[in-house]
Amino acid sequence: MPPAGTQKDMKNKMNDYLLNVENLKTWFPIKKGLLRKTVGHVKAVDDISFQIAAGSTFGLVGESGSGKTTAARTIARLIGATGGKVDFNGENILSLRQSELRKIRKDISMVFQDPYSSLNPRMTVGTIVGEPLKIHKIATGAELSERVAALLEKVGLSASHINRYPHEFSGGQRQRIGIARALALEPKLVICDEPVSALDVSIQSQILNLLKDLQEQFNLTYFFIAHDLSVVEFISDIVAVMYLGKIVEIAPSAALYENPLHPYTKLLLSAIPKPVPERKKTAVSAAGLETELCAGCPFYGRCPLGDDFCSKNAPPLEEKASGHKAACFKT
């Protein structure tokens, strides 16, 4: 923690939190016609709030199109936000101007899903991992290659790989390269966008263990996005479930799995095929295929509990138990 001045204290009442997201919105305009008039918005991220404590892991789960990746990219300032506040280390990074972004680029790094497209195929591993250091003028020449070699060894690769190209590595090794690049600038927050979902089962567990080890070693804070609940449960301290741009449930990892409150969370948990051999039908109703949006609860169309009230009123995210919030009228 940097020595906090009085001004900073004012800005950041909760000093424990590295990241404090308040009412974040990212809407994409839908443009139509010759003049490209905006006729509406896709509310990819719609009014989400959460906090991430320094040194912890925050897991964000959701299906494709739930807005989890958009949320991550908005927080990393790769996509412009429509509204809200993102306090990082006591500073609202959404209000930073383009020229001031370098500051947060050093402190927030990303690990991507696809180990094939996230590494430039024309660059050597050394160049890839070393580029952030070069751009921020942290190291050059011999020092640079020494640091790159150290980074590679930290993530379980050999320093002798420095002149090889990404296509000479397997998926798991490529993901390690991506992690080494993300750690190069010694960031405070690492945003992991589905880092293991493209990997083989036997490699997945290696990478998850590696991420955990690195967190302990460097006191990293993770913002971990995944669609696989079992992965998220393993790595996260707090888990949030996102559905159509909104957080529908947020709770400490153990509480969420032991006592899921939102029907969507329950549906997700029941849909995971468990590696226990018994033939059973899952409780997924085919009726909920069409997800038509109504004025009320976004999950209304698929919800087994929904009634008239739900279709007209949007449930707020309320604390139902200590530290356990859910957005549902029926719990």
């Binding site: 299906e63 494709s64 669609h227 029941s270 849909a271």
Partner: peptide
């Protein structure tokens, strides 16, 4: 997605 996966498998 997992929920769709369950439907398809069913």
């Amino acid at each position: 997605d997992v929920t769709i996966q369950a439907q398809i498998l069913d």
